[in-house]
Design a protein around this nucleic acid. Structure first.
Lengths: 109, 109
DNA sequence: GGGTTCTTCAACTACTTGGTTACATAGTTG
DNA sequence: CAACTATGTAACCAAGTAGTTGAAGAACCC
């Protein structure tokens, strides 16, 4: 388990791709909005204040990467979180970020 | 601790920035190469087979984000991992990726 | 000092991508 | 069927960025 070391170039690509999926504020907010349960595209677009087409595109990316799931019911598509582990990831990064900013602040002093 | 929910837009930006730092194969391989200890720029460039300028630029980004540290000694700059938690992150993502690919494969069958 | 080596900065190119607009598709309701 | 609604898709534009090349900066040796 874990990563091979040294990391072969073939592994670095897909890994980076995965991180890239999370490197966009709108996508992160989408995931967060889905945290409480399934939502429709228009619904999410309303909450985020951006166009429906834009949201649809981001959701398609997330779905392609397996982070969200899609369920069609009549007119609407209901999207939901497919991989809860992303939230642990975000928490981890948040902590690391906080540490960094704190040491940054300490350095200024 | 943890992330605020709902996630405010001001949080999504820095969080995404952090993920973006990891969304590049060359930068991931650099971090991996540093896993065993400090290395110099030219050294790393040799291992990766790319130009020194390129490596230097990537390292500067990682340093700006607090993921690597820099120590100057005479002619060379020695870079090292400043935040070991990135490796846990990579492991997590790797696992999630593996799950996704497996379910993908199962779906094809 | 002059010369050398390692590192970094600056300008440039090619590519990627987030966002919008407009249109197409599919389902629903009258 | 026709009107309407929700979603997805294609074309396009602007901004950001990875990589190269060339020159400048910094520390060592003679």
């Amino acid at each position: 388990m874990g990563l091979p070391h040294p990391l072969p170039a073939e592994f670095a690509g897909p890994l980076a791709e995965r991180f890239r999926l999370l490197s966009e504020p709108t996508r992160l907010r989408l995931l967060d909005l889905l945290r409480d349960g399934e939502r429709t595209v228009g619904d999410l677009a309303g909450d985020l204040g951006c166009t429906q087409a834009n949201v649809s595109k981001h959701l398609a990316m997330l779905a392609e990467g397996g982070l969200v799931s899609r369920r069609r019911d009549g007119l609407r598509s209901y999207y939901g979180v497919a991989d809860e582990s992303v939230f642990n990831l975000c928490d981890s990064v948040c902590e690391s970020l906080r540490r960094h900013l704190e040491s940054r602040a300490r350095a200024v002093r």
